[in-house]
Amino acid sequence: MKRSLSGIFAALLITSNAFAADLAPEPVPEMPPEVVVTEATGWYLRGDVGYGWPDLRGASYFQGSNASEVDFQTADLRDAFTGGVGVGYQVNNYFRTDLTLDYFGSADFHGSTVGSCGVAVACTSSDISSLTAWSLMANAYVDLGTYGYVTPYVGAGIGGTYVNWKGLRNTSCETGNSSNCDDTFTHDGKSSWRFSYALMAGATIDVTCNVKADVGYRFLHVDDGEMFGYNAGGGPGRDKGFNVHEARIGARYLFGGCAAPYEPPPAPIVYK
């Protein structure tokens, strides 16, 4: 009799445990959080400062007669600081465009010529001037992928540069005797717009979700144009254009560059 009761009790216990297991909610496997890929698009503002090393491709002037144009014996344009601002649009993660206005100057010009003058048959002149320039450029860039926080890029631009030459001060002295000199004459400086193009390369560094630092190099080509006017039997003169090799550092602010944080919906509880 005791064995029969023990068997019945054991059967009831097993049945109740099985019934309780059927009522308990089955655990729902935790789903991995959804990954949201936000494409960096939108308008941005930029600002840059830099230092430029110009390469003047030469200068010439009319000597005594407009039928006789000769080159300067020496013509050198010194280094200068640069700066600029711009507005652009990030089309996608790999392409962007902007419109920039950049300032170059003031860069000092030092040149010399040889010939005859009032104090001697053989004379060497000292020619001093300077220029400033404003470049208005439309640019396009290709971003070459993001590696951590760094995105390298290449770019190109096309536009115009307004070159403003100051007056050219010309002093001729006897060759080999710098104490025997003519008076100093000043030629009026000339200003003009010139065709320009640029090539860029560099990298952007993510500072925040909408602020990027920019470190790069720019090559700027500026066409030839008028340099100074006529005075005292010499001129006018022109420069043969110049290139600028520029190291730049700056920043871009991307409007709407920060995506809203993703909040996954609560997992449902399933009862079986």
Rank of each mutant, 00 (worst) to 15 (best):
L45N: 07
W53D: 07
G52L: 12
A20G: 08
D22A: 09
E34P: 02
V37E: 14
A18N: 12
Y61I: 10
S16H: 08
D22V: 02
V70G: 05
D22N: 02
V49P: 04
G58R: 00
A21K: 08
G47R: 06
F72A: 09
Y51M: 04
P54I: 05
A20F: 08
G50V: 00
F19L: 15
V70E: 04
M31Q: 12
Y44T: 01
P29R: 12
S16E: 14
F19E: 15
S68Q: 04
V36N: 05
S68N: 14
Y61W: 11
A75W: 02
E30P: 05
A20H: 02
R46G: 15
D55R: 04
T41I: 05
G42Q: 10
Q73G: 14
L45S: 09
S65Q: 10
T74S: 15
V35G: 08
A67D: 10
L77V: 01
L45H: 03
A67C: 06
P25V: 02
Y44V: 00
E39P: 02
Y44I: 00
P25N: 11
A18S: 12
A59G: 15
L56K: 01
E26G: 09
N17R: 08
P33D: 05
A75S: 13
M31S: 05
W43C: 03
A24N: 07
A59M: 04
